[in-house]
């Protein structure tokens, strides 16, 4: 499965707004997603927004990127207006949630 549009967008923006190379930017976002238990192919806007606010700033700080919190907030702002087809109803957790009361 290929990487999602959301992953590509955030990685490209990070590359443009920081000193990270394309490979470094994509690798950093991928690592942040992995730490959050997410995948670059299936991440949703809502999930990526949480990662941008809670995980990625730490990753950027360890790579000496200036103002990581501000940069991540700007990236989250870019995502906020994004409208994409959501497949959230077909995810394994959505199916398991429907199989029994929670």
């Amino acid at each position: 499965m290929g990487d999602s549009t959301i992953f590509d967008l955030v990685s490209d923006e990070l590359e443009q707004r920081s000193s990270l190379s394309r490979l470094e930017a994509r690798g950093t976002v991928r690592l942040a997603l992995k730490e959050a238990g997410l995948d670059a192919a299936t991440v949703t806007v809502e999930q990526m927004t949480v990662v941008l606010r809670k995980v990625l700033p730490r990753e950027l700080k360890t790579r000496n990127v200036g103002d990581p919190a501000g940069l991540c907030e700007a990236l989250a702002g870019r995502l906020s207006g994004l409208k994409l087809d959501s497949k959230i109803g077909q995810t394994p957790e959505a199916v398991f949630a429907r199989l029994a009361p929670s």
Binding site: A36, G37, E93, F96
Partner: peptide, 16 residues
């Protein structure tokens, strides 16, 4: 991992 960040339901996580 998602649960730690508030992105998962504890009951569904436990169900898996």
């Amino acid at each position: 991992r998602r649960l730690q960040l508030g992105m998962a339901d504890p009951v569904v996580t436990n169900r898996f």
